[in-house]
Amino acid sequence: MDTEAQHPERDRSSTPDEGAAEEGSRSARFSRLARGGDGRARLSLRTAALIGVACTVFVLLFSHFVVQPFQIPSSSMEPTLRVGDRILVNKLAYGSDSRPARGDIVVFDGRGSFVRAELTENPVSSVVREGLAALGLAEPADTDFVKRVVGTGGDRVVCCDDEGRIEVNGVAVDEGYLHPGDVPSEVAFDIVVPANRLWVMGDHRGNSSDSRDHLGDPGGGMVPVEKVIGRADWIGWPAGRWTSLEPTGAFRHVPPPSGVVGGGHG
């Protein structure tokens, strides 16, 4: 009996050692799991960062070469485009076999035609602004403009006929896209667009600084075709204004300029 009674004592005395060993083993497992969890978290964060960088690079490249968002900074193109609209500019619209046509809404670099060619910007702020502008999160550079093409190379553009309409190659144009209450132009002009140049005007003629305002400048307010960034094909934001910018039929009856076969038609 005494011997049997001693066995439970020995069993009880051995329990703390076994418990300590088990506790130590459990702690070691938890430690390994914790370290593994931290590693996986670091891996997940690194993966997410790499994916974010890759997506940003893709968007920037896509914006640079294919379609670029462009934030409308002024009312010069109302009612077609409103302040704050984000238009999507198709950079593949023009090439060797396709050039801007009358009626197209284009975004262009105005250096040398609308602004001084030597106008520069702080390099650091320029990079930041261009990156944000490429995502449609900032207004474009002061050298970028959006206007409607009214005359292409060889066209004679005159303002105005007896009814106050602009004439292109002798044909009056009914510009239904103009801002309500605006006249086609309060400035009289009679110009012939040189080859590879564009005569551009805003739809809100009473609030647009366009080719008319640069008649006396070098280049006569004409925009070189190679300065065109792309054609505005869609309004992408705000959501309530999602739409494609359909070609206007205002120039459909305008003939090619004299001596030119197949002029640019809208």
Rank of each mutant, 00 (worst) to 15 (best):
144 D>T: 12
149 V>W: 00
191 I>S: 03
142 D>N: 14
177 Y>E: 07
154 G>R: 03
117 A>H: 10
139 E>S: 15
151 G>V: 06
155 D>I: 12
165 R>V: 06
118 E>A: 13
159 C>W: 01
185 S>G: 14
182 D>P: 03
123 P>Y: 08
121 E>W: 11
183 V>F: 05
113 S>C: 09
114 F>T: 01
117 A>Q: 14
137 L>W: 13
193 V>C: 08
131 G>R: 07
196 N>F: 05
173 V>F: 07
113 S>E: 02
136 G>M: 01
111 R>Y: 00
159 C>E: 02
167 E>K: 13
150 V>N: 05
173 V>I: 06
145 F>Q: 02
186 E>S: 10
177 Y>M: 09
125 S>Q: 14
191 I>A: 05
135 L>I: 04
170 G>D: 09
169 N>L: 04
172 A>I: 05
158 V>R: 14
127 V>K: 14
117 A>K: 13
157 V>E: 01
162 D>F: 08
163 E>I: 04
144 D>E: 15
145 F>V: 06
117 A>I: 12
183 V>R: 14
145 F>C: 09
158 V>M: 07
125 S>W: 08
118 E>F: 11
166 I>H: 03
186 E>F: 00
182 D>E: 03
113 S>K: 08
136 G>N: 00
192 V>C: 01
142 D>E: 12
129 R>N: 14
151 G>S: 06
167 E>R: 15
178 L>M: 10
158 V>G: 02
178 L>D: 04
196 N>Q: 15
120 T>D: 15
162 D>E: 14
135 L>Y: 00
196 N>L: 07
170 G>I: 06
162 D>R: 14
195 A>M: 09
181 G>W: 04
128 V>K: 11
139 E>N: 15
191 I>H: 02
153 G>L: 06
144 D>W: 14
121 E>T: 15
127 V>H: 08
158 V>A: 01
149 V>G: 02
163 E>W: 04
151 G>K: 09
129 R>S: 11
181 G>M: 05
153 G>T: 01
181 G>K: 06
110 G>S: 10
169 N>M: 10
194 P>H: 11
